[in-house]
Simulated scan of single mutants.
Amino acid sequence: MNTHVGDARRPPFNAEAARRLREALGMTPAHVAYGMAAAYGLRIAPAAVASWELGETTPTAEELTALAGALWCAPGELLSAPRTLREYRLALGIAVEDLALRLGMNRRAYEQLENGGKWTGNDRQAAALGEALRLPAPALVRFTGQDGALTDMLTSAVTTRWQAYVRPIGKLAALPKERVQDVLQELHEDYQAGMTGTLNWGGGGGADESGKAGRAFLDGILDAFWERVDRQGA
């Protein structure tokens, strides 16, 4: 479960965005450093601000919040695409204690989750997490540790009767029934066509080749599902 990746203290910083925002305000790195110190008590050298903008170093989470304040923007405007729970939270500028309260968790339990701990919340808390952090469906499923369950259901859907899995997959992934139905039917047809095609190659290795093709398809079933869900929603 990818709730924690890389240096927890240093979120993925968008150096170009920081430079662009500063220049739009007519500020110098020295002005930014002064603003961070005046409003947040963080004493940062102008050279450090310049280094962030050049991509040589990156600010910590605390420094990012102060930098956003000095540049009159949301922290999310200074981040690259979020990858972890912490990064999604920072992008929205939500404090740990506020998010934990919305989820009905104590602060320590939520912090453990951000540090790579296992999700132990219920369905209501999972829905609240997705809503609070505006998580895309793949991220919500991953952060709540449901990747394995979804993969198992998708495997059964394409290898047996896909119709029986529309409802449970839709519930787990929080997706509309119609979209899940279309994607499962497409995946099922592609899997069956691939199996049939390899069997029709002829020769003694037909069954073996079919088995390899089937395993390769199933190994990538989760990524294929999300890719087609995204395409259906475009």
Rank of each mutant, 00 (worst) to 15 (best):
E62L: 14
A66K: 07
N2D: 12
G220T: 15
N115C: 11
Y88V: 09
A216S: 11
D147S: 15
T151W: 02
S210R: 05
G202L: 01
L154F: 02
D152C: 11
D182M: 13
Q146N: 12
R134L: 15
S156M: 14
T120W: 02
A207V: 10
G69N: 05
D223E: 13
A127K: 11
V180T: 05
K212P: 05
E189Q: 14
D182F: 13
V96F: 03
L101Q: 15
A126S: 15
L78K: 02
T28A: 05
W72T: 15
R167H: 07
A132M: 03
R19G: 09
A128S: 13
T3Q: 10
G6I: 06
Y110E: 06
A48I: 14
T151G: 05
M153S: 09
E111R: 06
G41W: 05
F143P: 00
M153D: 09
L21H: 01
N115H: 12
A8H: 10
L150H: 03
T196P: 02
R124H: 12
F225K: 08
E87I: 02
W119Y: 10
V5W: 15
P136K: 03
A68H: 01
H188F: 05
L135H: 01
E16Q: 14
I169Q: 02
G197T: 06
L184A: 06
R161S: 13
R142P: 00
Y110Q: 06
G130F: 04
L187D: 02
G206T: 13
G93N: 03
G145W: 01
Q192C: 12
G69T: 04
G203S: 05
A81K: 09
K118F: 02
W226M: 06
A8R: 14
E53R: 05
R9Y: 04
G170W: 00
A91E: 01
L78I: 08
V5E: 14
M195H: 08
G197Y: 04
W52L: 08
G211Y: 00
A61P: 00
W52D: 03
T151S: 10
A39P: 01
P75N: 04
G205R: 07
A164W: 04
E53V: 05
V5C: 12
E77N: 09
V49T: 06
T196K: 13
R83F: 03
L172E: 02
A50V: 02
L133P: 00
M195V: 15
E114P: 04
G214T: 03
M105D: 04
N200Y: 07
W226E: 06
E178Y: 08
G205W: 12
N200L: 12
A137G: 11
P168V: 10
L90R: 03
W72V: 13
Q185C: 12
G26N: 08
R83K: 09
G206N: 08
G55P: 00
G69E: 06
R22A: 00
L42R: 10
Y165V: 06
A127N: 10
L199Q: 07
G35K: 07
